[in-house]
């Protein structure tokens, strides 16, 4: 099943215009690249660039995106703090308090062994929790936003293409 979905996503993409979508946007942001290299603020972007800029700024300000970002951060920030502190505490305890770590618990198993296995266990648990959280709370909203950006870019490109053609006349 895992595999199936991956393939599907892959298959979708080949016929998709994503490959064109990638080319638009990112690259047109800084107006003229030469200016950007020289660390001089780029001149007023061309109308095309302003279009992409505006699309992303608008999506960035939208409530839907803020919600996705808030959900991501609400999980990731505390979880990262917890596992980093727990790992650092483990490493520091092993170097600073070997006596405490050597205290036997059951048979040959001591505190240090349990702490080490606990690190494995928390890693697996956090992995599972993150994957679940992302799947249930973020994926759908993120995909919708992705499509909305894509639609807007398509619309912009189409209107631009039309105006360019009109300017040139249709004598091709």
């Amino acid at each position: 099943m895992e595999k199936q979905e991956g393939r599907d996503a892959a298959g979708l993409r080949i016929e998709d215009p994503w490959y064109d979508a990638l080319a638009s946007g990112w690259g047109e942001l800084d107006g003229t690249g030469a200016a950007a290299y020289a660390l001089v603020p780029p001149p007023e972007p061309s109308p095309a660039a302003r279009g992409t800029r505006d699309i992303y700024l608008e999506v960035h300000r939208s409530a839907a995106f803020q919600e996705v970002r808030a959900r991501y951060r609400m999980f990731v920030v505390p979880a990262t703090l917890v596992f980093l502190l727990w790992y650092l505490a483990y490493v520091v305890a092993a170097t600073v308090a070997p006596g405490l770590m050597a205290r036997p618990v059951a048979g040959a198993v001591n505190v240090a062994m349990l702490a080490g296995l606990g690190q494995f266990l928390t890693t697996f648990l956090l992995t599972w929790a993150y994957a679940r959280h992302a799947r249930l709370r973020r994926d759908r909203a993120a995909l919708e936003l992705r499509w909305s950006v894509f639609d807007q870019e398509r619309t912009r490109e189409r209107t631009q293409g039309l105006s360019r053609e009109a300017a040139r006349g249709s004598g091709r």
Partner: peptide
């Protein structure tokens, strides 16, 4: 600001990703 906004939107939604 605009490019930061674009990075964030791309990073979290996959918009315009290759």
């Amino acid at each position: 600001e605009a490019r930061h906004a674009e990075t964030e939107v791309r990073a979290l939604t996959g918009a315009g990703a290759v």
